[in-house]
């Protein structure tokens, strides 16, 4: 097994100590940090995602794997920054105003970060202005979650406000949550709809024109 494969396997196993140790060994052996990131860490998380989709892994196992990746990223980030390597994209995500549901959003964040996106968590009960600020602050995607039929309408309020504030053209809008449908996304002018955390990654990639 090559060192890259060993790092990848350590991520899949959720072994943070081994992941960090192997990454350090890789850097000492002058492996390119960007290759470690893509071919070992992100590739490992992709396998974790596959195991999850096949029912072999549950979220707790994915979180353990994600923590292993995060531990390794702490070492790699300065080196990647020095090389000018950027994240797959920047996504700001929040649950809309009036809605306190958190878990679905947390799952989406975990999946997006594991896929290599930079994610800004705006929290829950997020006022319209904070989504606008996020769009102005360089987020390429603004993602919104709602679990109530009486709060989902705030997604349209945010999109309308983006138009008024002239930031709508700067961002893609991705929405999801139990009462949300593709039809609703179309109706309010969102760019993408994801029915679950796994598909959120796929749709985010599509929205940014990245290959899946």
């Amino acid at each position: 097994m090559s060192l890259l494969e060993e790092i990848r396997q350590a991520v899949i196993d959720g072994d943070a100590k081994a992941t960090v140790k192997k990454v350090e060994e890789g850097l000492a052996a002058e492996l390119d940090p960007n290759i470690i990131l893509n071919d070992a860490l992100i590739s490992g998380m992709q396998e974790v995602g596959r195991l999850f989709e096949e029912g072999e892994y549950f979220v707790p196992e994915m979180l353990i794997a994600a923590r292993a990746m995060t531990a390794a990223l702490k070492i790699l980030r300065p080196l990647l920054a020095a090389q000018g390597v950027q994240a797959l994209g920047k996504i700001a995500i929040g649950t809309v105003q009036g809605d306190l549901h958190d878990i679905g959003k947390s799952l989406v964040i975990m999946m997006l970060e594991g896929a290599g996106f930079e994610v800004v968590d705006l929290g829950i009960d997020v006022p319209v202005e904070r989504f606008i600020e996020a769009a102005r602050s360089g987020a390429q995607i603004v993602a919104m979650s709602a679990l109530l039929t009486t709060t989902m309408t705030n997604m349209k309020t945010v999109i309308d406000a983006m138009q008024t504030e002239n930031v709508r053209d700067q961002v893609q809008v991705l929405i999801g949550g139990a009462p949300i449908t593709q039809g609703y996304a179309d109706e309010i002018g969102a760019d993408g709809y994801a029915p679950d955390a796994t598909s959120a990654v796929r749709v985010a990639r599509q929205l940014l024109g990245k290959a899946g």
Partner: peptide, 8 residues
């Protein structure tokens, strides 16, 4: 029962 999609 609850409301259809609408703001309160």
């Amino acid at each position: 029962f609850t409301l259809p999609p609408m703001a309160i």
